[in-house]
């Protein structure tokens, strides 16, 4: 009894071949580029990039727990990145203050989505699709088609968020770990997280059991955008430049990671499973980048992985979209 319980928490009773796939990917890239693959530097690079993907994945998995799909996270992250860079170049304010402002402004987009979904009872997919476009427009307005290079004006402590390391582990990874842990504890181990899951499992039953769906819809979409904003700020700290496209590229891999994650550990969207998905997808992407394929290969990979991820997750659970 006890051992099966433990196996369940380790995800072994829900073993779906994902781990095998991860090993295959690793071996495949290893054969292509012997020697380059498993160095500690590589691990740091993967982890560093995975941190942004991971933050956005947590942003996506929170509303998904309540059966709401937020696809604005990538463009909201791009907005936070652009706004931070813009303010750094145009004001003399403290970098951390600027970052906080950008995160707060991002949260505003989530609040807007949440209110539209909760008050007008619109489908979250459509609402966040629209809000996503507005966020992209705001970014383009700020950047005016330019790539901004605010690195020199960003505080060193802020930059170390993206490039610094404690030992072999990037600091961004610690940020992700902290936020992920908090999200996991919230969803899995608090009453409000349970209500969120109830809403995701059966919205009617949740309402009839006394869950105020309005609140939770607004809350989880606002939280999602807040974390997206944090993801965007960390991304800026990592690469030091801001443009209006680099954040958009996170859309597909993140959704793929979240769907793959829904087959892991629990038979629904969950934070811990999402991290498994993130690691797998990140190793694949990193391999492609090492090999130096053209950009279009990246797009094919992203698209194919997303579709495969949804196929895999369909087999083990059911979603409303």
């Amino acid at each position: 009894m006890r051992s099966t319980a433990r196996a369940r928490t380790a995800g072994l009773t829900r073993f779906s071949g994902l781990y095998v796939l991860a090993i295959v990917v690793l071996v495949f890239w290893r054969l292509l580029r012997p020697g380059v693959w498993v160095s500690s530097q590589n691990v740091s690079v993967i982890l560093s990039e995975a941190s942004v993907v991971g933050l956005l994945a947590v942003a996506a998995v929170i509303p998904l727990s309540a059966s709401l799909l937020d696809i604005s996270f990538a463009n909201v992250a791009g907005f936070a990145m652009g706004l931070t860079a813009y303010l750094a170049l145009h004001t003399g304010w403290n970098t951390w203050l600027i970052g906080a402002l950008a995160v707060a402004a991002s949260a505003g987009f989530g609040l807007l989505s949440g209110l539209l979904v909760a008050v007008l009872e619109l489908p979250s997919l459509i609402v966040t699709l629209g809000v996503s476009s507005v966020a992209l427009a705001a970014t383009q307005y700020l950047l005016d088609g330019q790539t901004l290079y605010p690195r020199a004006r960003l505080a060193p402590s802020f930059l170390s968020l993206g490039t610094g390391q404690w030992g072999p582990i990037p600091i961004a990874t610690f940020v992700l770990a902290g936020i992920g842990l908090a999200a996991w504890a919230w969803i899995e181990h608090t009453p409000s997280g349970r209500r969120l899951l109830a809403l995701g499992g059966n919205a009617n039953a949740a309402r009839l059991a006394g869950v105020r769906s309005f609140r939770y819809q607004v809350l989880c979409l606002t939280l999602s955008a807040t974390l997206s904003g944090i993801g965007g700020v960390v991304l800026l700290a990592t690469i030091g430049t801001a443009d209006d496209v680099s954040a958009s590229g996170y859309l597909l891999p993140v959704i793929a990671a979240v769907f793959l994650g829904s087959t892991q550990i629990k038979s629904r969207f969950n934070v811990a499973g999402t991290f498994v998905g993130v690691i797998l997808i990140q190793t694949g992407i990193h391999g492609i980048e090492l090999k130096g394929f053209d950009q279009w290969v990246n797009y094919v990979f992203d698209g194919a992985v997303l579709i495969v991820a949804v196929i895999v997750s369909r087999r083990s659970s059911k979603y409303a979209f």
């Binding site: 899951l197 109830a198 059966n202 009839l208 059991a209 006394g210």
Partner: peptide, 17 residues
Amino acid sequence: RNSTFADFDVTANITAA
């Protein structure tokens, strides 16, 4: 439609309210 949470175990269904 209106009362069970199919994804939840019996425990979480009983404690849901």
